[in-house]
Simulated assay, not measured.
Amino acid sequence: MYDVILTCNYSPWSSYRGGGQKSTHMIASTLATMGKKVCVIYSKGVFERVALPEDLPYDVVWAFFFAIKPGISSPLRFLNGISFYLKTRKLSGSGTVLHGNGEEASLLRYVRNKKRFVFSLRYPGFEPFMYSLPWNKIWVWPYVFLREPRHIVLALALRGADAVMCTSASSKESLLACFRISEQKTRIIPNGIDPVFLATRFEWKEQNGILYFGRLTHAKGVDVLLRAYAGLEEATKQIHPLKIIGDGPYVVELKRLASELHLEKRVEWQAWVGSQELAHEIVSHRLVALPSREESFGNTMLETLATGQSLISTNAGSIPEVTEDHAVLVPRDDVDALRRAISECMSKSPSREDIEARYRYVRERFSWETTSQMYLKSYEE
């Protein structure tokens, strides 16, 4: 019998992946090293092939993803809760804690043979129509389903969970405003940081270049970065090319925008890389720019700061809360402000004091060991 079963749409090794998948993997790995018997149920399409690492410390089971090619825009993904429920029901025992991480957990409340059902909210934000809805009115449910079916199954998971964990005060505030669940069952448990980034240290050696890494979606603001970069002086762009690492549904549109801005020779595109290579890329550039429009936590921001590297981001969502005064923040969607911030950062060398402050800040505040202990406490409440 498993002590903990975690569920998560996609996987950290799927073509579509992000912070939620990585966080689920890190929680499972850390719990397993603490002596817990852990299983993670990920999802994949019927024709999808995903290669797993050989040294995983936990078991993996695959649920069916309702799409030929799984992705964030898959119209039937709200049905994934059915396949996750069927898999979980077979694996769960009377002492098993079920830990959902998205809308795939919509039906886990109905698994009878379990100890407890907890839920981690990993959504960066919700559409404006979701705020202040009167969920006690019967018309709200079909209304939300017609607008965004995923939010209905998410509401089922949130209402059925014994405890709901948010990664930041900002995400908790958004959750309470949109879904009107009891505040008493909510907890704030921040993510930890991949040890690879904690083991990598930035040293100023007059590096060149600007780096972005992460999902290529509208929410990440890469289009704003391209426009801001295009506005830099030609001499600056020649010395500091822009490198974009990641993948996602927005990639074709972003490459088209780069072409329209005549940046073909200044922007390098690279698909996802592993943590070790990514950490090396972070410290090999002059600065990292992550101009997100929304974030529920900000894994990429902290991975950058963990190395001591300079970070330019925005004041969206949880970013100010998570980065405190260790990053340069500009208003989201503000191309001119982002361009000025990049130019100013380029005009001076990073100080040893600032590098050390960023380095210490992440190590003192964020670790998966601490985060997992907080989850274990919520499992026993």
Results as ranks from 00 to 15, higher is better:
144 V>R: 00
173 E>R: 13
134 P>F: 10
150 R>C: 10
130 M>V: 04
109 R>Q: 07
138 I>M: 05
112 R>C: 09
167 T>D: 04
171 S>F: 08
139 W>D: 10
160 G>F: 04
147 R>I: 01
156 L>T: 05
155 A>P: 00
122 R>Q: 15
161 A>I: 06
111 V>K: 06
136 N>G: 09
108 L>K: 02
151 H>P: 00
108 L>M: 10
125 G>A: 11
118 V>C: 09
142 P>M: 11
144 V>S: 01
172 K>A: 14
122 R>K: 13
152 I>S: 12
145 F>T: 04
170 S>R: 03
173 E>K: 14
123 Y>C: 07
154 L>V: 01
138 I>F: 01
121 L>D: 10
154 L>C: 05
132 S>C: 05
128 P>Q: 10
119 F>D: 08
133 L>Y: 09
135 W>D: 01
167 T>R: 08
162 D>K: 03
170 S>K: 07
165 M>Q: 08
153 V>D: 08
156 L>P: 00
148 E>T: 04
158 L>N: 10
116 R>P: 02
137 K>C: 13
120 S>Q: 09
142 P>K: 03
127 E>S: 13
124 P>Y: 03
124 P>C: 08
168 S>H: 03
143 Y>D: 05
125 G>Q: 07
150 R>S: 12
141 W>K: 02
133 L>P: 02
169 A>E: 15
157 A>L: 06
149 P>C: 14
162 D>N: 14
132 S>L: 04
122 R>I: 12
167 T>I: 10
147 R>S: 06
151 H>F: 14
160 G>S: 06
133 L>T: 08
162 D>W: 01
132 S>D: 11
118 V>D: 02
169 A>W: 13
171 S>I: 04
162 D>S: 14
149 P>I: 13
112 R>K: 14
169 A>H: 15
139 W>A: 11
160 G>V: 07
149 P>N: 14
118 V>W: 00
138 I>Q: 05
126 F>M: 08
112 R>L: 11
163 A>Y: 08
161 A>K: 02
163 A>G: 14
130 M>Y: 03
124 P>E: 06
129 F>K: 02
142 P>C: 12
120 S>E: 07
137 K>T: 05
123 Y>E: 12
160 G>N: 04
156 L>W: 11
111 V>A: 14
114 K>E: 10
128 P>W: 03
151 H>D: 10
121 L>T: 09
139 W>K: 02
139 W>Y: 14
121 L>F: 03
154 L>M: 10
123 Y>S: 12
143 Y>N: 02
162 D>P: 00
158 L>P: 02
170 S>L: 07
152 I>T: 15
132 S>F: 06
111 V>E: 11
147 R>P: 00
170 S>E: 09
142 P>V: 04
171 S>N: 07
159 R>E: 05
166 C>N: 14
125 G>P: 01
